[in-house]
Design a protein around this nucleic acid. Sequence first.
DNA 1: ACTGGCACTCTATTAGCGGGAGTGCCAGCA
DNA 2: TGCTGGCACTCCCGCTAATAGAGTGCCAGT
Lengths: 340, 340
Amino acid sequence: MSLDDRKLEVLRAIVEDYVETQEPVGSKALVDRHKLGVSSATVRNDMAVLEDEGYIRQPHTSAGRVPTDAGYRLFVDRLTRIKPLSPAERRAIERFMVGAVDLDDVVHRTVRLLAQLTRQVAVVQYPSLSRSAVRHLELVPVSTTRLMVVMITDTGRVEQRLVELPGPIQDGDVWELRRRVNEKLTGQRLADTPPLVQKLVEDCDFERRAAMTCLASVLLETLVDRSEERLALAGTANLTRGGVLDFQGTLRPVLEALEEEVILLKLIGDLEPRTTRVLIGDENQIDNLRSASVVSSGYGPGTTIVGGLGVLGPTRMDYPGTIATVRAVARYVGDLLAQN
Amino acid sequence: MSLDDRKLEVLRAIVEDYVETQEPVGSKALVDRHKLGVSSATVRNDMAVLEDEGYIRQPHTSAGRVPTDAGYRLFVDRLTRIKPLSPAERRAIERFMVGAVDLDDVVHRTVRLLAQLTRQVAVVQYPSLSRSAVRHLELVPVSTTRLMVVMITDTGRVEQRLVELPGPIQDGDVWELRRRVNEKLTGQRLADTPPLVQKLVEDCDFERRAAMTCLASVLLETLVDRSEERLALAGTANLTRGGVLDFQGTLRPVLEALEEEVILLKLIGDLEPRTTRVLIGDENQIDNLRSASVVSSGYGPGTTIVGGLGVLGPTRMDYPGTIATVRAVARYVGDLLAQN
DNA sequence: ACTGGCACTCTATTAGCGGGAGTGCCAGCA
DNA sequence: TGCTGGCACTCCCGCTAATAGAGTGCCAGT
């Protein structure tokens, strides 16, 4: 049996009221607050059906109804009309982001902005290296046997590594290495570089071979083996809004999960371009976050994605508003990166 | 009236028991658990005195006693024999820190280590720029009118900034600028650089004057106006240990405070060399952290301090253990930096 | 100066008791 | 067939009262 329009309308009303009041909503209250045009008894029948189908449930017999994860899912998929951002919010974004000086600053501002607008926990991934391109590589002699490699990407990110050389090196050789490396790698996407680096070593003349080999191994590590992706986090205090009820008693598991960068990356990673993803409840496959939802989106210049950002909150959250905000911020940051 | 030895012993016992059980401790329980050699009635009298002096208090009439901030203070100042780290802990430090690849990694590992060992919230300040020395400055042309400045310090930290030039610049000029800047600044403590930078501009020949001026202003900003000091944080989830009772009901204010970098810097800043500082309760001047204590220590190569680190927990914390751990970790990290 | 004893205070826990919100079901009506 | 009003029923929540227990303060005695 499928759900007719009125039942869907009832579901929407339940979700909206519950999100607002955080209390189970009963049939009487529903007809009072929404003009459904039918009596409470009718609504009760609809509710019984919705419950059978698994979209809502009762915390206990003779209490009001609460949406289930499936209920939120349906709500998000079929009942959410995107609400455009208010002018005030648009202005807030502008005001917050204007004057950012470097990449670090952009990321920090973004994450705080998100946390503030959505009143939830916000996560922003630094532009991922593997999807950016090399703008410049700089080699700086730090001592006679040590070299600092500094890489600048087109997203403005800077990475540096120390290279231990097998033996002393002349300034002139550093020069030559710098020239070769830049010649080969500048402008390349990081994901495409490994074979090029390999080639660099092979093409190298004998006397610089040893140094180049060391350099190459560090480069590979920096360019590719990027296990350590960086993140910024803000708004943890928002978890305490609305009592501890939201997260079935304890914040503990949630706080723990938020400290695991791997988990966060999983939450806001693997995004498709130009879409905003919503993970409700245990859709996110993470035990500690059973009662949390994540709204996330990729960002980057144009339609490419160089990183993810998103917010995390109780399943009981304002989905339309949050989705709109996340989307808007992602787009804004993307444009910012494109300009740069 | 001063406190005789037995009264102090009673205070110590109260603190120790309360820290362990988290429950007000009564006279009976005290004589049972500690061999004080006197009866509970005598202990009661001592307690009455300790209460008069403000070192302990009763949550309500006819409940056990709980230490006040002043009580903890006395405990820390006069009753704490430093307990040496257990071999297991020493090994944990080694195991955790070995194999750190760069400064970022060192800081991250340190903060997690601290959080894990003390089971509290840990904060580590990145080596402060103003106290380190310039190892090298690199100028990288990013476009014809933009320059990337990369500064490497002797603590291994790397900072970069973008400079917008007033007009296009030749490679040769970049060269010359780089030479001059390094000549003047390499090896200098950052705190000493401002007048030198000023001098750089004055000594500059006319055609490079404009570019140098821009560069100088960015340099000053990077070198000195270091309002944005970076921090690493870990162990937030530990706040939820021992119920929410520790922080008078809500974690909210604590979480909020932890998000303010300025506040954290204040907590672990301004440290004297070779000491471990303990701030108990509202000694830390921060409203949101009334019921929290902070144990912190400076670290750095040798006896210089390049940054602070510490942990934050409920006033009811294991001071001797925490102090020992913080001190040990600070020393370890200092040695690590010195080696580098 | 310390101790045992005792009366007293206050809390935390438990049980019992409506009030109320909300439901499910049924019979009647369009 | 679908909606409505009515009604009995269920269960939570908040209130009060009663009780047990831990801990204290004080006093008289050694």
